[in-house]
């Protein structure tokens, strides 16, 4: 059973926000109006933001540190423990998933997540007509018939990064159709595929020979907020000074 994991090399990240846009297109994230965005209600499963107190140096020789942040897909996720209805859960491959047909919108998971990677649909989602025609039609149902992944979310439910779980389903189905075994390197999330600086790596953490396993052993490897005990599977490689 693979354990999906992502490694982000901050040294290579150019903060182009390509991952954020790719994620938005892949996962049908609704577009917030400027007023809503000003209120802090924009939804970015993959956010790129400057680190607090990030600017160093004197003008004009300043430097800003950026952070790019998908879901950490923790091995010990605080969000799934507090969900009263198991609308969010961790599956056998380590993906922390969200079931839009089950979520009651109590927002306990959004409160419990120390990384603030969970987003709430304050209003029914809206797109401009052109984008609306090109929404990703996939709905991952994982057998139970419940909507997950890129399925258009109703208002009042919580959503989050899924590591593009629909791409995992697609890769599996392709392998099945071609009558061969599924290889872990066939599955790559949209943000990893699009990354300009090739700063993102994705793969199976259980396989000691995979790229992510090797990178995770690097001296530069760290996890966000290690002190809260969540054991993230999204691992960062430090920027060199």
């Amino acid at each position: 059973m693979p354990k999906w994991s992502m490694v982000i090399d901050l040294e290579k990240c150019v903060a182009c926000q390509g991952c954020s846009i790719a994620c938005r297109m892949e996962n049908n994230t609704p577009v917030a109006t400027p007023e809503e965005a000003w209120d802090g209600r924009e939804i970015r499963w993959n956010d790129v933001f400057p680190m607090p107190r990030a600017e160093v140096g004197d003008y004009p020789n300043t430097k800003t540190h950026y952070m790019t942040r998908p879901c950490m897909h923790c091995e010990n996720p605080p969000c799934i423990k507090v969900c009263p209805v198991q609308a969010t859960f961790i599956d056998e491959e380590g993906l922390v998933r969200q079931n839009y047909d089950r979520c009651i919108g109590c927002r306990y998971c959004t409160v419990a997540c120390p990384y603030a990677v969970r987003y709430f649909n304050w209003y029914a989602p809206e797109w401009n007509p052109t984008i609306e025609q090109h929404l990703n039609p996939q709905e991952v149902s994982s057998g139970s018939g419940d909507r997950e992944g890129p399925a258009v979310r109703p208002k009042g439910v919580v959503e989050k990064c899924t590591y593009c779980i629909q791409r995992l389903d697609n890769a599996r189905q392709r392998a099945e159709a071609e009558d061969r075994d599924f290889r872990p390197d066939e599955y790559v999330p949209a943000c990893v595929e699009t990354c300009t600086g090739k700063a993102r790596f994705f793969g199976d953490m259980d396989n000691p020979d995979s790229t992510v396993s090797k990178l995770a052993k690097s001296e530069r490897a760290f996890a966000l907020l290690e002190e809260v005990g969540t054991h993230p599977k999204t691992i960062y490689l430090q920027e060199g000074e």
Binding site: K81, V82, C83, P84, V85, Q86, A87, R102, C103, I104, G105, C106, R107, Y108, F120, N121, P154, K155, G156, V157, V158
Partner: peptide, 22 residues
Amino acid sequence: DLGRPDRVLYLFWYGRLQSPLL
């Protein structure tokens, strides 16, 4: 406070005892 008050009965139908809300 609920985003989906129509699903409030899920709290019992799918109630999970690990959650402090239960």
